[in-house]
Simulated assay, not measured.
Amino acid sequence: MDTRQVIATLPALQLIEKLRARHGPVLFHQSGGCCDGSSPMCFPTDDFIVGDRDVQLGEIGGAPFYISAPQFEYWKHTQLIIDVVPGRGGMFSLENGEGVRFLVRSRLFTDEEFAALQAQGKV
């Protein structure tokens, strides 16, 4: 049973490592807004201020992954799977210009997995 709230595919982990080598420590934020906000955004750790209401879901490739509180309420029943696909990254996201972008895929937690998350106080 994998109850991590956020995981990443191998291509995503490889891109994170490439971005970290170029920019230093990075973090992710998923706001759930329109346009760029609907994609996971990767920032240098020192260039992004995490909000008081942002929820840290976990880490992918050693990078903390945050989501806005309202978006967490919608997605708390799902495991986010961060992947990479061809395309343009978000305007301010570090993968912009790489010819690929981060993408969120998801799957619903089973009842058993969700109960385990509740027992751990994560939802």
Rank of each mutant, 00 (worst) to 15 (best):
M1Y: 14
D2P: 00
R4C: 07
Q5K: 14
V6P: 08
V6I: 09
V6S: 12
V6C: 10
V6H: 11
L10S: 11
L10Y: 09
A12N: 09
A12W: 08
L13Y: 15
L13W: 14
I16W: 14
K18A: 15
L19D: 06
L19Q: 12
L19P: 03
R22D: 13
G24H: 05
P25I: 11
L27T: 01
H29E: 10
H29N: 10
H29P: 00
Q30K: 09
Q30L: 12
S31C: 01
S31A: 04
G32P: 00
G32H: 09
G33S: 13
G33H: 11
G33I: 01
C34S: 15
C34E: 15
C35K: 12
C35D: 15
D36A: 06
G37Y: 08
S38I: 14
P40S: 09
P40W: 08
C42V: 15
F43I: 00
F43P: 01
D46G: 06
F48H: 12
F48E: 04
F48N: 02
I49A: 08
I49N: 09
G51L: 07
D52Q: 14
D54T: 00
V55D: 07
L57A: 08
L57H: 09
E59I: 00
I60C: 12
I60G: 05
G61N: 10
G61A: 05
G61R: 07
G62A: 05
A63G: 03
A63L: 01
A63H: 12
P64S: 10
F65A: 02
Y66W: 13
Y66S: 05
I67D: 04
I67C: 04
I67S: 02
S68G: 03
P70C: 09
Q71S: 08
Q71C: 01
Q71P: 00
E73D: 04
E73C: 02
E73K: 07
E73G: 04
W75F: 10
K76E: 11
K76C: 08
H77P: 02
H77E: 12
T78G: 08
T78F: 15
Q79F: 01
Q79I: 00
Q79T: 02
Q79V: 00
I81Q: 11
I82N: 14
G87E: 08
R88L: 10
G89C: 06
G89E: 09
G89W: 04
G89T: 02
F92A: 06
F92L: 05
F92V: 02
F92T: 02
F92I: 06
S93W: 03
S93T: 06
E95R: 02
E95C: 00
N96I: 01
N96W: 03
E98A: 06
G99F: 07
V100C: 13
L103V: 13
R105A: 09
R105F: 08
R105I: 00
S106W: 13
S106A: 06
R107K: 10
D111S: 09
F114E: 13
A115R: 14
A115N: 11
A115L: 06
A116S: 09
A116E: 14
L117Y: 09
L117G: 13
Q118M: 03
Q118Y: 04
Q120V: 00
Q120Y: 01
K122N: 05
K122E: 03
